[in-house]
Computed example of a mutant assay.
Amino acid sequence: MPSSVSYQLENSRALASAVSNGLGWTIVPPMSLWSVRECFDRLNSFPVEGVHEVKRLGIGARSPMFRSLANDIKALYAERWKQKYGREMQERAPSLTAHLRPLFA
Results as ranks from 00 to 15, higher is better:
residue 23 L to E: 14
residue 71 N to G: 14
residue 25 W to H: 09
residue 36 V to T: 06
residue 73 I to Y: 10
residue 3 S to R: 09
residue 92 R to D: 08
residue 34 W to T: 00
residue 60 G to P: 07
residue 77 Y to C: 15
residue 81 W to N: 01
residue 41 D to C: 11
residue 13 R to P: 06
residue 21 N to W: 10
residue 24 G to D: 10
residue 66 F to M: 06
residue 6 S to W: 03
residue 93 A to G: 04
residue 29 P to A: 12
residue 8 Q to M: 11
residue 26 T to S: 08
residue 82 K to D: 03
residue 75 A to N: 15
residue 81 W to F: 10
residue 82 K to P: 00
residue 19 V to R: 01
residue 22 G to C: 00
residue 86 G to T: 02
residue 6 S to N: 09
residue 36 V to W: 01
residue 82 K to F: 08
residue 47 P to G: 06
residue 21 N to C: 04
residue 60 G to H: 10
residue 29 P to D: 15
residue 60 G to L: 11
residue 84 K to M: 06
residue 18 A to T: 08
residue 5 V to M: 07
residue 77 Y to L: 15
residue 43 L to E: 04
residue 31 M to I: 10
residue 33 L to A: 11
residue 28 V to D: 05
residue 17 S to R: 03
residue 102 P to G: 03
residue 95 S to E: 11
residue 103 L to M: 07
residue 24 G to T: 06
residue 45 S to V: 09
residue 91 E to F: 06
residue 62 R to V: 12
residue 28 V to W: 01
residue 101 R to F: 14
residue 94 P to R: 03
residue 69 L to W: 11
residue 55 K to Y: 03
residue 19 V to F: 04
residue 89 M to D: 01
residue 58 G to D: 06
residue 70 A to V: 12
residue 19 V to N: 02
residue 4 S to C: 06
residue 30 P to Q: 06
residue 35 S to M: 02
residue 34 W to N: 01
residue 84 K to H: 12
residue 98 A to L: 07
residue 28 V to G: 04
residue 44 N to V: 14
residue 4 S to W: 07
residue 13 R to T: 12
residue 37 R to Q: 10
residue 73 I to R: 10
residue 103 L to Y: 06
residue 64 P to H: 08
residue 99 H to V: 10
residue 54 V to L: 13
residue 91 E to Q: 10
residue 14 A to F: 05
residue 4 S to Y: 09
